[in-house]
């Protein structure tokens, strides 16, 4: 018995130059905010950008960006619609606002389905918003998307950093490229993350201060781009990633 979908997945990314999975292990550290804002910043710099939300049990990039009223087109597969210049793909097109209570193997199957049927147009960057944890979705993305690179997010919390180290070990063991680590929600001077992660052999990209006004910008790409969060992220990626 053969699963034919596995043979077309890499072909679906043949027109995508760089694929970045935004991950970090722990929940609540700002992965989705980083992924969505990163996509917005890249699109602002006129890069052809896609955003794929693979957090099937807790999708949120559509809320962050304010995506509503668009739906993929069917053209020899499904073509993600554009939102604010970003080709946007999410399971929410099919689940609506309903919860999706999926077990691990079903998440895997749904990821394979989405990757096999989604036809990305020519892109400079595809940003993938990863769910928390180092379970099926991370392993599937590594297994199925051969050129994927990881951008890891953490916070000054030792709890988040300990989880990040575990994910980093898995990525290192599997030989996956890690672009670097981003410290989010910084509240004190200096960077605890930079010193803590010094010995891990992964570039420290920079820190983003805790942005108390970020919540007010949710749902509006224009407002999101004006936040301190986006400004700091933009500066970091412009210096270290582009």
């Amino acid at each position: 018995m053969m699963d034919p979908r596995l043979n077309v997945i890499n072909k679906r990314f043949q027109n995508v130059k760089k694929i970045i999975a935004v991950s970090g292990g722990k929940g609540g550290i700002g992965k989705s905010q980083t992924a969505a804002s990163l996509a917005l910043c890249l699109a602002k710099h006129n890069y052809r950008t896609g955003l794929l939300d693979l957090d099937f049990c807790g999708p949120s990039t559509h809320v962050i960006l304010g995506v509503e009223g668009i739906y993929p087109e069917e053209e020899k597969g499904i073509v993600p619609p554009k939102f604010n210049g970003i080709s946007f793909m999410s399971i929410t097109y099919y689940t609506g606002n309903n919860p999706s209570p999926l077990r691990g193997s079903e998440i895997s199957n749904a990821i394979i389905e989405i990757l096999a049927i989604t036809r990305w147009e020519d892109l400079d960057f595809l940003i993938i918003d990863m769910p928390p944890g180092t379970g099926d979705p991370v392993l599937d993305v590594i297994r199925l998307i051969k050129r994927v690179e990881f951008l890891l997010v953490t916070t000054p919390s030792r709890v988040a950093q300990e989880v990040l180290k575990r994910e980093l070990k898995v990525l290192n063991e599997l030989g996956i490229t890690v672009i670097g680590i981003l410290e989010n929600m910084k509240t004190k001077k200096g960077s605890q993350v930079a010193s803590e992660l010094l010995n891990l052999g992964v570039p420290f990209l920079g820190s983003i201060d805790f942005d108390y006004d970020l919540e007010d910008a949710l749902g509006s790409p224009a407002k999101l781009l004006q936040t301190d969060f986006a400004a700091q992220l933009d500066q970091i990626i412009s210096q270290k990633c582009l």
Binding site: S100, P101, L102, R103, E106, N109, E113
Partner: peptide, 29 residues
Amino acid sequence: FVPEVAHVYVRCPRCGSPDFEITSGRGVW
């Protein structure tokens, strides 16, 4: 489009749970 989305819309006819297994007839193989 995504067969696993069945868990969003289908419920067990006896107990009403969305926690079910697709034992046959899922996709294309």
